[in-house]
Design a protein around this nucleic acid. Structure first.
Lengths: 234, 234
DNA sequence: AATTATTTTTATCAATTGATAAATATGTAT
DNA sequence: ATACATATTTATCAATTGATAAAAATAATT
């Protein structure tokens, strides 16, 4: 997959005034998010995606200019439509930080953030396909990496790290807080659908509500551990 | 990639008595572990692998029967040659458990296990390519999944969970201990080479010794937190 | 209803991929 | 030195893939 700097081309828009193009575009995007998220860029073929969307293969070039354009459009679609729940929680946490937040409050916000993340990554079937796409791009940076890094990953990790620092009794974020944030998020991702090893070890068909609750309980134990430590230089 | 039940065929062995076949086989395996680990099964082509190994493409069929056979041979190669360091630590931990282990001792063994894992996953360039292959197969189960699950992942997670239970003051492993074990291992994997998001957030070229030390310090803090909690039903 | 624009489809193409067969080169045993 | 076995290579193939062009079908406008 070419990772050269590519300006994002928009081919067939969804605002042509014609009745069908928006539906067709959406169907292709949905099918593509699933295919790319599960199989990856190389293994997902434009014919498979077209079949799954109920169109034929040249429609992909017509609407998105080709496989590359479709891939990037998937990332944009995810940013536009699927990060809503996380965005709300993030805004609330940022407001609370700005208004001054004590350790207990920060622990509560952090738990809400991680809970929303777990909800997205573990429980929601449709959002979970988008999360699959995002997770894969994270591990195998391609055309959508910069877009997702700037708009999703870096803000999320920094927010979690800021909350962690406050829980620990500090105002400034340190490298250790970022490491903790990354590890927590990575730990949650181990229970997302398709993580066969975790499911097999736990003997779960899927994590489900109970699995999510258990994961969050383990994270809460850690957060409470931090909240109980004496503040540094205090 | 076909995931049908495949008996493992051995084509050209390394014990033919002819001087070159062992070298050629090894060169192909090395190149393949790198290619499959980085790009995945689909995106890695037999021509690329052959070029990297300094042979031509039909050599892959000659020695391994084809792409599938090569993939499985890679997994076997990794099991035969790269899990040595982890195996030693595991054996020591199992012996210590068998001989009776107190909470403090279990904390120490757990830290050694995680340290060895971090050494393998984060620091060693060559072993890290093998870990890349293993990590990918973990997330995208293919022909080598069962082999690796049985011989590597399940034993490793169960051992870590057993140590965690003892650290927490219990003899029996509970689901929460397994969740903790999975999350710890997943947390370490977030800092392996190629994890661009973590490197970019931390502003690290690579984790290096300092990064590894910081990750282990965060894990130690968690382990010590468990060790300090009152034993259940105590 | 006629014209124009858009969408969908059929047909085709060049390039790539894993596999195969046969030829050539090299190594081993007698 | 000869015969046999193995390793490497060249050449070829069928199938697949993303892209393209043109034709056909459908929708919107006048």
């Amino acid at each position: 997959m070419a990772t050269k700097a590519n300006t994002r081309q928009v081919y067939r828009q969804s605002n042509t005034g014609y009745s069908k193009s928006a539906d067709t575009r959406k169907a292709i995007l949905r099918a593509a998010i699933v295919a790319f998220g599960r199989a990856g860029y190389s293994a997902a073929t434009t014919r498979q995606i077209a079949d799954a969307a109920g169109v034929n293969q040249p429609a992909i070039n017509y609407y998105f200019g080709g496989k590359d354009g479709l891939y990037q459009a998937c990332a944009q679609e995810i940013l536009d439509n699927f990060k809503g729940p996380l965005e709300q929680v993030s805004l609330r946490a940022l407001e609370a930080i700005g208004a001054g937040l004590d350790r207990k409050g920060a622990a509560r916000q952090l738990q809400e953030l991680l809970s929303a993340l777990a909800e997205v990554m573990i429980l929601s079937e449709e959002v979970s396909e988008a999360a699959g796409f995002v997770g894969r791009e994270m591990r195998e940076p391609g055309l959508a990496y910069q877009m997702l890094y700037r708009n999703l990953w870096a803000p999320g990790i920094e927010l979690a790290a800021a909350l962690i620092a406050i829980v620990k009794g500090r105002a400034e974020v340190e490298p250790a807080d970022r490491v903790d944030a990354i590890m927590m998020i990575s730990g949650i991702s181990a229970f997302a659908p398709g993580h066969s090893v975790s499911m097999q070890v736990m003997q779960w068909q899927a994590a489900g509500k109970d699995g999510k609750a258990l994961v969050l309980e383990r994270l809460e134990a850690q957060i409470l551990g931090w909240a109980r430590t004496p503040a540094p230089g205090g």
